[in-house]
Nucleic acid binder design. Structure first.
Lengths: 105, 105
DNA sequence: CAGACACATAAGTCCGTGCTTATGTGTCTG
DNA sequence: CAGACACATAAGCACGGACTTATGTGTCTG
């Protein structure tokens, strides 16, 4: 199941770090992502494969580099999942509304 | 880290099922949760311990029963995490806004 | 074309984790 | 108080997953 792939992909802190790095940049290749992370090249490649399979990132080959970027639709399932259960708690959904409002500024 | 506990807790499909059952009811004891799930009593107890440690559920002892219920604040960290990265994609955040709007009716 | 480079894949190891059976703890009831 | 009941904990096992080293694949450059 796809929802399961996403949760499992995000369960690993290293993969969340990689995802956050990608989210804070337009795109990065695998080597650039390794900067500042004590992680081997194969490990990075394997993590990216997991994120790719979960459709959380897209890849684009340019010559011998592969540029990775966040897939904008990737987190949609998580958002829907959370929103589904948030309906039971008006307080929480209000907090989310507030977060969105602050993001407008 | 707490955020890590939540992601790891939700990474297991059985625990997500348990969480969903709790979310769709006021409260349930461990035995009631097992209904319809082919899962042993210790396994259920262990899953509930993980959800409890991640602060996704609360427990309340009443006699020899322990009633479990969803902790309304539990998903807050996930919501914040998702919302943080959603800022990069206006389309997605608009979809979330739409979801919230529909929930108003 | 040969070598360097960016990345993927293979294969093996180790540890976390989800399950089991067995037993312990606490509470209710006859 | 003895037994039944609800749940937790202990201990062992089996599997998955995150890492390693080694090697393969594709691309650029001199």
């Amino acid at each position: 199941m796809m929802e399961n792939d996403i949760f499992k992909a995000l369960a690993d802190p290293t993969r969340r770090t990689i995802f956050e790095k990608l989210a804070s940049s337009q795109s990065m290749n695998a080597s650039a992502l390794r900067n500042g992370m004590s992680i081997s090249q194969p490990a990075m490649s394997q993590h990216l494969a997991v994120l790719r399979q979960a459709k959380l990132v897209d890849e684009e080959r340019q010559g011998r580099f592969v540029h990775y970027r966040v897939n904008p639709d990737g987190l949609a399932l998580i958002v829907q999942w959370v929103a589904r259960y948030s309906t039971f708690w008006p307080d929480r959904i209000d907090a989310l509304r507030q977060t969105l409002k602050e993001m407008d500024q």
